[in-house]
């Protein structure tokens, strides 16, 4: 009975999140290219950054990728006021919540993970890798004048290359293929396999955008709060967490994407969401469930 009640609440919050995620993904990718004169969208909204990782080259994209845009400005030697302002503003307002609610690439990873419940656990310390990538990306792009992250990014291959391979443009473009194309293809396929086995691996270990937003988790206006005195440390929060976090150890962990699953799964209702210090979401106390009874 208790298990069903908690499972229903998880389903409800998941359903709301899925609706938001799909609305965001379809809204960002709502352009229908002309089949005969194939080209990507170039209207005014393409100047704006997407609320997540969504490739500029995707034939359906109406916005630009923030990481692609950042590299573009580094290459053309302009200070990226707009891109940094956008990333920072989102970060200071909601932290990494855009990763959990609006990012199309995050949604894709979650959907592919649904293929199997089997999962491989990777050491959390590998999470530092995305910061290494972020720190390396800036000087490498600056000195080589090349958007290196885009050249290797699996999101570009999945959202950009694969649809374009099905378009009439591909016969012309395929003549320009070099070994780098196969490296990019290999990386994308490796990540697709990882998506099946690991929860949101790209977000946890690779994404420089998530890395930047994660830095704001501790100072953003929306924050998580845990009453550690009442916490049972049953680890149900970690069991449902797409980022594999024990939220009671660090409520505003740099990997937390504020998906709110833990808030509703917690049997003691010790987790709440705050907006500028006042409780925004504070579930009422319900009876206890045991570890293993709930699945994400």
């Amino acid at each position: 009975m208790h298990r069903n009640r908690i499972a229903n609440r998880i389903k409800k919050v998941n359903l709301i999140r899925r609706i938001v995620q799909f609305t965001s993904a379809l809204g960002i990718n709502s352009y229908i290219p002309d089949i005969k004169n194939f080209s990507i969208y170039q209207g005014p909204s393409k100047s704006l950054c997407a609320p997540g990782l969504n490739c500029y080259a995707c034939p359906f994209a109406r916005t630009s990728c923030p990481i692609g845009s950042l590299q573009h400005f580094i290459v053309v030697r302009q200070f990226p006021y707009y891109v940094l302002g956008y990333i920072g503003l989102v970060g200071i307002l909601v932290g990494r919540a855009f990763c959990g609610w609006l990012c199309p690439f995050g949604l894709l990873q979650e959907l592919i993970k649904k293929i199997t419940s089997f999962r491989i656990k990777i050491k959390k310390s590998w999470g530092i890798l995305k910061y290494v990538i972020l720190l390396l990306m800036i000087p490498v792009v600056y000195f080589t004048y090349e958007p290196w992250f885009c050249k290797l990014c699996p999101a570009g291959t999945i959202e950009g290359t694969f649809p374009i391979m099905l378009s009439p443009l591909w016969s012309e473009l395929s003549q320009l293929i070099s070994y780098r194309f196969f490296i990019k293809l290999f990386i994308a396929i490796a990540f697709i396999v990882l998506f099946v086995l690991v929860r949101r691996p790209f977000c946890r270990y690779m994404c420089p955008l998530g890395a930047m937003w994660g830095l704001f988790n501790r100072v953003s206006f929306v924050r998580m709060k845990v009453d550690v005195n009442r916490c049972l440390k049953c680890d149900l929060c970690q069991e449902v967490c797409p980022m594999d976090i024990k939220i009671y150890e660090d409520p505003n962990h740099y990997d937390c994407i504020r998906c709110l699953k833990c808030v509703y799964v917690c049997p003691q209702k010790v987790i709440e969401v705050e907006l500028a210090g006042t409780a925004l979401i504070k579930p009422k106390l319900r009876p206890v469930a045991k570890r293993g009874e709930i699945s994400g």
Partner: peptide, 26 residues
Amino acid sequence: KGVKLKDYVEVELNGNILCLSCIGIE
């Protein structure tokens, strides 16, 4: 400041068609 400078991303890649780096082509 970024919006005022209108220095946000311009669509100027490769003959107005594609970002070739994104799709893995040189």
